[in-house]
Design a protein around this nucleic acid. Structure first.
Length: 274
DNA sequence: AACCTGACCTGTAAGC
DNA sequence: TGCTTACAGGTCAGGT
């Protein structure tokens, strides 16, 4: 579910909630969520006694920095964290529980069970396969026009699909891909390599601006997203095309169209995105 | 290498 | 009211 703005909002909540807490016990109710180490008993044992010192983010990944290890966590479509007292009743979607020495617990809940966690030795997290291939963060310093032009050269696949893989830049998912392409006035099915330099620069500006603005608003809540404090985002109130099929385009008033592109619902204005 | 299609899961809403 | 189908903020293994 969450894209960069939502994950960053979760990160900020978690930073305020769990930094300084020491893990006393771990429970796992759905083994497939734990990627490594295997078996899950190892994952649990290694966490015992470690204190959370920092919560960072890279793309859509959350990174919990502990004494010896880094817990890498991806929420995928429906993952959520929450801090509760240890006597609060579990729900049917509570899959991983971190009990702390102070009597509270961090809970990972995930209706679809798509989320994944890995525990890696501190210092080796950048080499982990979930991190090693990631593109730059969407900032003016990291995401340069030169990089984007090089990356996109000769690419034949649709620009929307390129935005969704995390190599050109990190953090974009299905909502923000549509919003960014609308802002940049680029049709989602244009081959990546066919964009002009001006269009690539427009894409760069749109990506940085929209992801920053959405982060400022705590992300978008379309169905179920909440941060670790239980708060919804408000950026959905500013969506121009996502979820707006049939509505008039905010620029030209022609109806917004929804198509399926590479298996993903895709919203755009056929009139002003060429 | 580059690209596309299922598979992973469950819940909700729409269609009949 | 039921039953069936499509769809959902993501990624990856496997195939062409």
């Amino acid at each position: 579910m969450p894209e960069l703005p939502e994950v960053e909002s979760v990160r900020r909540g978690l930073e305020a909630q769990v930094v300084g807490k020491t893990i006393q016990e771990v429970q796992v109710y759905w083994d497939n969520i734990i990627e490594s180490p295997k078996p899950v008993s190892q994952f649990k044992r290694r966490l015992l006694g470690q204190t959370i010192h920092q919560v960072k983010r890279r793309g859509k990944l959350l990174l919990f920095y502990l004494d010896q290890d880094v817990l890498i966590s991806h929420l995928r479509m429906e993952g959520k964290y929450g801090l509760l007292d240890q006597d609060a009743p579990l729900t049917k979607h509570s899959h991983v529980i971190f009990n702390f020495r102070d009597g509270t617990q961090l809970r990972y809940e995930d209706v679809r069970k798509f989320g994944r966690m890995s525990l890696v030795e501190k210092g080796k997290e950048a080499q982990h396969k979930s991190l090693a291939q990631l593109g730059p963060e969407p900032t003016f310093e990291d995401l340069t026009l030169e990089w984007m032009l090089t990356f996109l050269a000769h690419k034949t696949r649709a620009i929307k699909s390129i935005l969704l893989d995390q190599k050109l830049l990190v953090g974009v998912g299905n909502i923000y891909a549509d919003e960014i392409l609308f802002q940049a006035r680029i049709q989602p099915d244009r081959p990546g390599g066919s964009l002009t330099n001006e269009e690539v620069e427009a894409l760069r500006q749109a990506a940085i601006k929209i992801l920053q603005e959405a982060t400022l608003r705590g992300g978008s809540t379309v169905r179920s997203y909440k941060n670790s404090l239980g708060q919804a985002g408000t950026y959905q109130d500013f969506h121009q095309v996502y979820g707006k099929e049939g509505d008039p385009c905010p620029r030209c008033h022609q109806p917004i169209k929804k198509i399926k592109l590479n298996g993903r619902g895709t919203h755009f204005c056929p009139h002003c995105q060429q």
